[in-house]
């Protein structure tokens, strides 16, 4: 491995850019491919797209011989909008499951360290944090739980724009119907709106805030690991 290539790879990983190193195990020749700049005429294009999605490294046969693909995708993280009761359980549950968690809520009465302890907490409006301090990306899940349009709507749109692997919003069917109308008015396409998981969480009959937190994290894991069709990443054509 070339040191300059390793340096570039480490920089890409720090910047949360999904990257694949393509190696010829016979002669050691190598190249880096970043997901963001993958060319449609790359000889391994389809294979690379599939690998970025599955995040699995492996040896493949090509017309030019064997190639080893080492896939580096950013560690998954969760951004929660709303420091509400559910979030007090959601933070620790998500952290135990291995996610890097950030909670954003401009209401300082909710977003207090006393209520959240160790979890990363930002007491600002979402539009002042995203994307200036925190850029959403396809390896981020966004969960909006304030059900206040003034707080939730901006990050929900930003999450659809960024192609977040999971976008979920808390609220009754009535609340969500109103949200859908607002997104439509803002120009979002029906397929994009359909990506917002609502009612949020897997259907396990969750009642208490802690149970709802478990149902939400389980749904995030499902989106990450199984990539069900209705949660397929859709970074392009969010807006009509």
């Amino acid at each position: 491995m070339d040191l300059a290539l390793l340096t570039e790879l480490n920089e890409a990983r720090l910047a949360r850019q999904a990257t694949i190193r393509v190696t010829d195990p016979n002669d050691g020749s190598e190249r880096l491919v970043r997901e963001a700049t993958l060319r449609s005429d790359d000889p391994l294009h389809d294979e690379l797209v599939a690998r970025f999605r599955s995040a699995k490294s492996g040896l493949i046969d090509t017309p030019d011989g064997k190639r080893f693909l080492t896939v580096y995708v950013p560690p998954p993280r969760i951004v929660v909008i709303g420091a509400v009761h559910i979030t007090q359980s959601l933070g620790p549950v998500a952290a135990i499951a291995g996610f890097d968690v950030t909670i954003i809520d401009p209401r300082t009465a909710f977003a207090s360290e006393e209520r959240f302890g160790e979890v990363k907490l930002v007491a600002k409006w979402p539009e002042d944090v995203i994307p200036a301090e925190l850029a959403l990306d396809p390896y981020t899940a966004l969960i909006a739980v304030t059900h206040d349009p003034k707080i939730d709507d901006y990050p929900l749109k930003a999450a659809l724009d960024a192609g977040c692997f999971y976008v979920g919003a808390l609220g009754s069917r009535k609340t969500h119907a109103a949200r859908v109308e607002r997104l439509k008015t803002a120009g979002a396409r029906a397929e994009a709106i359909a990506r917002v998981a609502a009612p949020i969480g897997l259907t396990i009959g969750a009642q208490s805030p802690a149970e709802i937190a478990v149902a939400i994290v389980a749904q995030v894991i499902e989106a990450l690991r199984l990539r069900p069709a209705h949660l397929a990443p859709m970074p392009a054509d969010v807006w009509a």
Binding site: L3, N10, L14, L134
Partner: peptide, 22 residues
């Protein structure tokens, strides 16, 4: 925020780079 924690002190490729550069 955030990104620095993704490559921790135990990051293998980060360590390899720093070893070589030393």
């Amino acid at each position: 925020m955030g990104n620095a924690s993704d490559l921790t002190d135990r990051d293998v490729l980060g360590i390899a780079e720093s070893w070589r550069k030393a």
